[in-house]
Design a binder for these strands. Structure first.
Lengths: 337, 337
DNA sequence: CAGCTTCTTGCAATCGCGTGCAAAATTCGC
DNA sequence: GCGAATTTTGCACGCGATTGCAAGAAGCTG
């Protein structure tokens, strides 16, 4: 263990020849300190390398400044992008992000939330999985705010931010129809995440309304490899699809690569492809993928703005759910445009 | 603000009919509590939803359990991967990760470290940028450990973990020579990061030793777009290179795409390509990139193991620097193998 | 200079927890 | 059943900060 420790306000006070309180007030915006003492305190603090102990401050103020980000598969392009946006905006808001990784296992999210409670996080943002109702209650009762992003949960209290997946699905169907495609397909994972389900439903419904039939295939996770497998399955059918909507961009990349290399198909002339998320790779020359951009910046903004509100969510009703629409990014993987 | 607050040990003690110390001891491994009181405490804690306040505990123990990860460009595939590994292993070690984003601006890393100090982090892991010497001293003096990953800094105290870039560069040169390439090129960014510089030096030196000349081109950041520009510059030369080592996989992806689409070159028959980082995309069918895998798991392991050590690094000498070798991942972007 | 208001400043309590110390309770040996 | 050894338990203090309160300093008016 460390022999020498962090420097405390006491030491600064001693050096500056003032009381502890004066030091504290110097670092508390809006507190009453004369210009002279403030200068002396700041000087002493600078010399000693003093920094306010946020652990102790959090204890007193009952506000730690910590926001927990609970997420699985951090290394995935889309997840990493939303993580980046959240941490950046949190920092600008004077908060700090605590990152907790979850996995698919049961209770993983619950454990993460317990950790958030232990550190008295001001709020937790949940990007993966869904916590048990009792834990949600515990958080709300404890005064910890909850933000659920693209999670399907109907209990009041947490702020719910969702992207209008069904609408996106419907717009893709229209685009495919306009491109003259006749045999549509939807390539999904087996994850069964609510947003994926909504994308599928919206797409299938819109296609039906347009008089087009859709074949749906589901396999594996939402990654590149699953996309390849889905291509194998869909492109070997007797009635080969001429347009496929992949539930995520990663799936789409795997799908396109397999379609070209293993089936010799040209995109978009023989096969139209659409994805979702607008990950960086979607813009690469090898893919030029038409896809939907999740408004990560606005998602983060809504979440963080709410944290500055007084609407703490324990009044039993909670904040209004927010639904944002995804922006269609048109590239060359669909004919026309 | 929240009206009702987190439940405290006091309340648990009251409900269980014991003293507050008993509660504290119940949650302190190795403390002396009878089986009966422990049960009663645990029951009361469960019913009330009590969780030890790590802010207060950190204050007492002088050990917060927080480890700061200081990094820029979180959304980049390689960065995201190492972030994932670090957070996972930290969680397994009973610590928790605090994520701080930096940018290229001056003092960005310093500000991040100040934040780490404010939260009394047990350690900070620096993945981007380089902190000012005075801040490093302050951290060490305060008992906060520092881990520098692929940073070039020679002051003792922090744990330094580096990948043997020069060796990797040299191995690529050999591989190119064996593939019969004659005109080598190195595609680098302008970032001037020490590891990038070492890759370049190792490659150029080894090529010279093999009697092969190398043309070096540098442009932009380490991303996909820069790779495209570098391809423009290198492939329009009168003596077009027949092998290129890109400083990162992202550069390589951009380079390959441009080489194929804009110059109609086939990889590896007309152009051999190598990258560095082994990001997920390197394994995609469109790239099949031969590259080097940074041993992120071992990097994280070394870092976290050291945090459990008593070698705090303030004895003036500090821990021995660690150099790990990158693993060559052979795919089809170089002939032969 | 008296009398008043307005700022500053120090004292002391508080936040939730860990822990040394001594008293109380239990166990043990015989 | 009694004294000694061993747990178990409670008290009280400290960790490093914030903040209400009251006293002291300074400024203003006439």
């Amino acid at each position: 263990m460390a022999s020498k420790l962090f420097v405390s306000a006491q030491e600064v006070a001693h050096r500056a020849g003032v009381s502890r309180s004066a030091v504290s007030r110097t670092f508390t915006p809006g507190a009453s300190v004369s210009a002279e003492t403030r200068q002396r305190v700041l000087k002493a603090a600078e010399e000693l390398g003093y920094h306010v102990n946020h652990l102790a401050r959090g204890l007193m103020r009952n506000e730690s400044g910590i926001v927990c980000l609970i997420v699985s598969d951090v290394a995935t392009p889309y997840r990493a992008a939303v993580l980046r946006e959240l941490t950046l905006q949190l920092q600008n808001a004077g908060k700090v992000a605590m990152l907790i990784n979850t996995d698919r296992s049961d209770g993983s999210v619950d454990r993460a939330l317990h950790q958030a409670i232990r550190y008295r996080a001001d709020a937790s943002v949940i990007l993966s999985g869904l916590p048990d109702k009792s834990i949600v209650q515990l958080c709300l009762r404890s005064g910890q705010r909850l933000v659920l992003i693209n999670r399907d949960d109907d209990q009041p209290g947490p702020l719910r931010i969702n992207v209008d997946d069904a609408d996106a699905g419907s717009r893709v169907a229209t685009a495919f129809a306009r491109a003259g495609c006749r045999r549509l397909a939807f390539a999904n994972s087996l994850a069964g995440t609510p947003s994926l389900v909504r994308r599928e439903k919206g797409f299938v419904a819109a296609a039906a309304a347009l008089g087009l039939e859709v074949v749906v295939e589901r396999y594996g996770a939402t990654g590149y490899e699953a996309g390849q497998v889905l291509a194998q399955r869909l492109l070997t059918r007797s009635e080969r699809p001429d347009a496929v909507f992949c539930a995520t961009d990663l799936l789409a990349c795997g799908f396109m690569d397999a379609a070209r290399r293993q089936f010799g198909l040209a995109v978009p002339s023989q096969l139209c492809v659409a994805g979702f998320d607008n990950i960086e790779q979607a813009s690469w020359l090898s893919y030029e993928l038409t896809t939907f951009a999740q408004p990560v910046d606005r998602i983060a903004k809504y979440a963080i703005d709410w944290l500055g509100t007084d609407d703490s969510g324990e009044d039993g009703v909670g904040p209004e759910p927010i639904t944002l629409t995804a922006e269609l990014i048109w590239r060359s993987s669909i004919r026309g445009g």
